[in-house]
Simulated scan of single mutants.
Amino acid sequence: MQSGSTDVNGPGPSDGTAASAATDRRRARWADHREQRRQDLVAAAVRALLRHGPQVDMDQVAATAGVSKPVLYRYFADKSQLWLAVSEVVAARVVEAVAPAIEQVREERDLVRATIDAYLGVLESEPALYRFLMHQSGHPGVHQVIAGSGRRVAAGLARVIGDRLRALGLDAGPAEPWAYGLVGFVQAVGDWWTSHGQPIRREALTDYLTTLLWSGIEGVRRSADLPRELTRAHERITP
Rank of each mutant, 00 (worst) to 15 (best):
E126D: 09
G141W: 06
Q104I: 02
E124V: 12
Q144N: 07
Y119Q: 07
G148R: 06
A154Y: 05
E107L: 11
I146F: 04
V89F: 04
I146V: 14
R109E: 11
I146D: 02
R159F: 11
Q144C: 01
G138H: 10
R151L: 15
A77N: 08
D117T: 15
M134Y: 00
V94M: 12
I102H: 01
A101D: 00
L111I: 01
R109F: 03
D110H: 09
L111K: 01
Q136A: 13
V105G: 01
Q136W: 00
F76C: 05
L120Q: 03
P140Y: 00
E124K: 15
S125Q: 15
P100L: 08
A97R: 15
P140W: 00
E96F: 03
I146H: 01
I102T: 06
V86C: 10
R106T: 08
R74M: 09
S80R: 14
H135S: 03
F76P: 03
S137R: 14
G138W: 06
Q144T: 06
Q81F: 05
V90S: 08
I116D: 10
H139D: 13
G121M: 07
E126I: 08
G141K: 07
A77E: 14
V90H: 09
E103Y: 06
A114I: 00
V94C: 07
V98Y: 02
A101K: 01
G150V: 08
A114L: 00
Q144Y: 10
I161R: 12
M134C: 09
I146K: 02
L133V: 11
F132A: 00
V122M: 07
R113Y: 05
M134E: 11
V86Q: 04
V142K: 01
V145F: 03
V112Q: 03
L133Y: 08
G148E: 09
L133E: 04
V122C: 11
V105M: 04
A155P: 02
H139K: 06
E107R: 12
V122H: 09
H135A: 06
